[in-house]
Design a protein around this nucleic acid. Structure first.
Lengths: 333, 333
DNA sequence: CGCATTTTCTACTACGTATTACTAAGACGT
DNA sequence: ACGTCTTAGTAATACGTAGTAGAAAATGCG
């Protein structure tokens, strides 16, 4: 196991000084093409890569970001892909950190990460709210999808509930007047945003709300809520906070003998793979998570560099119209 | 923005030498309790953390691992959680790397990572096969779920298709003799393992195989395959390589007027959240991805340290019996 | 008490890089 | 030819840690 080559080794082989090698690798001007080529081929021959630890010590920068998982119930893959690819392109490495569920431990760990001096920025996909920025001495940039949510609320990104309004208006256009919302947990900003949008729309369009039920991400519970409705409820439009809740609601409706979408229309959120194959297939909201991840990362990096925030991404969300909605069946028709 | 404290600062405040601080933080024996306390409280006061870049330069170790994503179609969250938590507990940091889909670029990037000297080990959740271990000079440990698959085949881990055999035997016990397999892509070791197990079981129990169809992860395509079956096929048991394929098959069966599970029994794989709420709910295989991630990581770390491989995890997979299977309906009964 | 042994702490150095200050060598105008 | 300006390269240094070799202090023992 031979020793790892250093810039000195490369310099010796290329017949130049170590400084010159360093200049070549950092791309400083004032190096002749001939010298650059000599250095590069010597580096290639030795399989040289700059030692990032040494570089980091010298530059006083780590070039490293952290991403906090999990966002339970969220498909992590595309989000990570987008974020990691963007970071790499910008020259950052991304570390993944997993935090405890318990809020106290969670806050404590976040604090430790922010104060570890290891990261220039932290991107949190966790729904747990922003930590107190304690010893804010040299605190890294911090961006949580949670805040992100709040900020983006009105402008079209992550938890923007506009598609929900779009779906409700469409249902009203079909003739629906009576709605039910199956909400997600109150500590998820996205769930809250959807609930608020539901209530606001009921109010604005003077609809009848049968209720706001649920409060977790359990499809079983969603089904139970539907099971407890009076027999004479339909026609009804159920706005579920995600596809799992929608699926539970559809199943419970069918089991009660209500037809979907005949008696009951249902909408979900997330466009999980199975929602297309449900019978009826579920009308839902698709999010471009890859682009969302990339955008979040661009935003974080801009914050680190004190650049202005990148331009807003449009069309990150889109309603996917499927079989689970239809005009309400007139009673007795 | 004050400067980051160093071990020298701590030493000065504690009234000891820098070496002593270093000894305290690396846990070397031969430090009196009184001194240790002095150092620790000085460190706490200054909010000191060892500079990992400097440590890394000194120790010639990075303490850093890489995880290669994606494993498309796989729920990444729990897998990552398990792996990252385990690595952290063992003192490693985990970096996430996203690689191009194109096989050539992919191989090239993997090569770059293995030769970057940045990682002591690399864990790949990507289905793309092991790269050529090119300049194997000081190559880090490398563990791909792909190889993992092959090795574990007979012993119960990731792609072990034993649950598939269990489901088939159960269906035979219910009276089924006629089977269909909807396979996944041939470049997924797990998909291949399931197909092989299907064929072997058909052979061993002298069953009738209507065919092996599919070849991707598309539920639409799975449905089309079911749609092309002759009218007189049922009773039939469909073994799908995952839940999406199973869902497509169930939907297509229902649309043909075949009852599920009356005329057609269907099994899936993965236990995705919606499979429980399907009507009928889908009999499937649940994997403990969190434990699998943790186990993979333990294995990687053992390889790095040249320890013996950790003990085999049992019960990483479990059949979840649901409504989508039943005894075959006697024709005309 | 005096010597040997153990315990506890310190001085010093190397790790590999980026960068500052500097030098040598051409290029140029007069 | 002379000084000036530009270009291309070099020497030297500091970053913060872990660990080696050794000094000093404490302890044990006859």
């Amino acid at each position: 196991m031979g020793k790892r080559p250093t810039s000195h080794d490369v310099a010796r082989l290329a017949g130049v000084s170590q400084s010159t090698v360093s200049f070549v690798f950092t791309g400083r001007a004032g190096i002749s093409t001939a010298t650059r080529d000599k250095v590069m081929s010597a580096a290639a021959e030795l399989n040289y890569r700059p030692n990032l630890a040494a570089r980091s010590m010298r530059t006083q920068r780590t070039g490293r970001l952290a991403i906090v998982i999990p966002f339970p119930g969220l498909s992590l893959g595309p989000l990570l892909e987008g974020a990691v690819t963007t970071a790499r392109e910008t020259g950052y490495m991304v570390e993944v950190v997993n935090l405890p569920q318990d809020p106290d431990e969670h806050a404590q760990e976040v604090d430790a990460i922010l104060n570890s001096f290891e990261y220039e920025g932290v991107l949190s996909f966790s729904p747990i709210p922003t930590p107190r920025m304690s010893s804010a001495a040299a605190a890294p940039a911090f961006l949580a999808l949670t805040e992100f949510d709040e900020e983006m609320h009105a402008t079209g990104a992550f938890s923007d509930a506009r598609p929900l309004v779009e779906m409700m208006e469409h249902l009203v256009g079909l003739g629906h007047r009576r709605f039910l919302h199956i909400a997600g947990p109150a500590d998820y900003p996205a769930a809250v945003a959807r609930r608020d949008a539901y209530l606001a729309t009921v109010d604005r369009l003077e609809l009848e709300s049968v209720g706001v039920v649920g409060g977790d991400w359990s499809g079983i519970h969603a089904g139970e809520c539907v099971g407890e409705l009076p027999d004479d409820v339909p026609p009804l439009a159920i706005i579920a906070a995600n596809d799992v809740l929608a699926a539970g609601a559809i199943r419970a409706s069918l089991q009660r003998g209500w037809s979907v979408p005949g008696d009951v229309s249902v909408t979900g959120w997330d466009d999980v793979p199975l929602s297309l194959h449900f019978l009826p297939s579920i009308t839902t909201v698709s999010q471009d998570r890859r682009r969302l991840g990339a955008y979040s990362m661009r935003r974080l990096i801009a914050a680190i560099r004190r650049d202005e925030a990148p331009e807003q991404e449009a069309d990150l969300q889109q309603v996917i119209w499927r079989e689970s909605i239809a005009p309400p069946r007139r009673p007795g028709a």
